[in-house]
Every structure is written in structure tokens, then in C-alpha cells.
């Protein structure tokens, strides 16, 4: 098998308050290969969000190794993490997290601005991404003028616009009704078919089954790993 795109080895995360040590993650091993669609699920408090934060370089592990695209990224400075996050990772959130003051176009453009791409290239990529999610006709609208499903499609466009190595989706259907939820899942499956690597956190088994591989977390440990129904 090829070298994994993302490799976690003995990852630990301990939160320490004045009196208590909480082990959020303990000895997590995980490989995600390029083009894979992996779902992570588990009960509330099992460490899903902590794992996603570490995968997304929003937090650093207390111990262990984290290799992304062949580079050790477990202990980097804030600025280094921001740079890698911008280039390698695309986020899709449960509550969309679009910026209300920015138009759809500007929301999708934002990570490309942070990357320092020239205006012309940014524009082309934004238009391509919006086209991909079927939202190019709403480029000038504000998020408040869109439905929940439309907002999540814009969030997907924002995540893919930077052509990241991996998409991290955190309960992407959690704030949507079933119709819009299905539509977003179809969109993710479509992206996967086009070659995107996706790691999705969800507690909805219905959607978890769409992934190629499903990982179960419990008390900060990977307790089960199984093949899903979806195939590329």
C-alpha cells in the first residue's frame, strides 16, 4: 500500500486544569490514504472533536507523532500550523461558519487571500469552486440571504477552493434537515469521486455508512474500524 497522506502514531491529548487531568485522546493510531473517505464517530465526549482539532492543526497533541503529507506536524509554531492548515486542509463545519459581513464570493476567497494568491488566480478558483457546488449564481449574496443547505454548499466551496490535501468535515449535516443533509452528503461523495480525501466526524450512522472506512472512538481510543458501504 502507498504511503499514507495522514499518519497518526500514539497520539495523546491531556487537558490539565488546576485539579484534574483529563485524557481526551489515548494512544490513537490512524492512517488516512490519499483519495480515502473516512468517517469518525462515537458518543458525545469520546474525543471526536479533539481528534479533529489535532488533525486540522487547530490544536497540538500532548504526545505522539502526526505526519501530514510526509511531514511531521505535531509540534509546530502557530504561524507554521496556520500556513500548513491554509494549504493542506479544508474545513467544513456543522454550523457552516460563514462570515456574515462577507459575500459568498469573499467567503470562498478568504483562504486564498491568506495564502497570498494573486487576485486573478483567486477569482478563477472561487468561480470554479462555486460552480462545483452549484452556487455561482449567488456569488454576490450575503450568507444571511441563503438557506442552511446553500450556506453549507458555500462552506464546501470555501473548503475545496484552496485545493487542499484533505477535507475535514465536522458533522457537516448536523444543522440541516434530511433533504439538505442528503444533498450535502451527495456533494461530498461527488468530491470524493473526483479524488478528494475526506475525513468526516459524525454521530449519524446513516451518514457514517457513506464513508469507505468507519472509525469508532470511545473514551479517547479507537475501538473499532470497519469498511463502509460507499466506494469510489
Amino acid at each position: 500500500m502507498s504511503k499514507p497522506l495522514l499518519h497518526l502514531k500514539s497520539i495523546k491529548k491531556v487537558f490539565t486544569t488546576e485539579e484534574v487531568e483529563t485524557h481526551a485522546l489515548a494512544d490513537v493510531h490512524l492512517d488516512i490514504h490519499e483519495g480515502e473517505f473516512v468517517s469518525i464517530s462515537g458518543p458525545s465526549g469520546c474525543g471526536k472533536s479533539t481528534l479533529l482539532a489535532i488533525l486540522g492543526l487547530l490544536d497540538a497533541p500532548s504526545g505522539g507523532e502526526y505526519w501530514l503529507n510526509g511531514k511531521q506536524v505535531a509540534q509546530l509554531t502557530l504561524a507554521q500550523r496556520a500556513r500548513i492548515r491554509n494549504r493542506e486542509i479544508g474545513f467544513i463545519f456543522q454550523n457552516f461558519n460563514l462570515i456574515g459581513d462577507l459575500t459568498v464570493f469573499e467567503n470562498v476567497e478568504l483562504p486564498l487571500v491568506y495564502r497570498g494568491l494573486p487576485a486573478g488566480e483567486r477569482r478563477q478558483r472561487v468561480l470554479d469552486s462555486l460552480e462545483l457546488v452549484g452556487m455561482s449564481h449567488r456569488a454576490g449574496h450575503l450568507p444571511s440571504q441563503l438557506s442552511g443547505g446553500q450556506q453549507q454548499r458555500v462552506a464546501v466551496a470555501r473548503a475545496v477552493g484552496g485545493r487542499p490535501s484533505i477535507l475535514l468535515a465536522d458533522e457537516p449535516t448536523g444543522n440541516l434537515d434530511s433533504t439538505n443533509g442528503d444533498a450535502v452528503m451527495d456533494l461530498l461523495k461527488d468530491l470524493h469521486r473526483r479524488g478528494s480525501t475526506i475525513c468526516m466526524v459524525t454521530h449519524d450512522t446513516r451518514f457514517a455508512r457513506h464513508a469507505q472506512r468507519s472509525i469508532q472512538l470511545f473514551d479517547g481510543r479507537v475501538v473499532e474500524e470497519a469498511a463502509g458501504e460507499h466506494t469510489a
Partner: peptide, 16 residues
């Protein structure tokens, strides 16, 4: 703060 968190998640550096 939510907007700031989004910007950070999208790769905005603290300096930016």
C-alpha cells in the same frame, strides 16, 4: 470571536 475562529481555521495567521 466566531468569525475570528473561522479565519484561523481557514489558515489566517495571527499576524494577518
Amino acid at each position: 470571536r466566531q468569525e475570528v475562529a473561522v479565519r484561523i481555521a481557514l489558515g489566517g495567521s495571527r499576524a494577518q
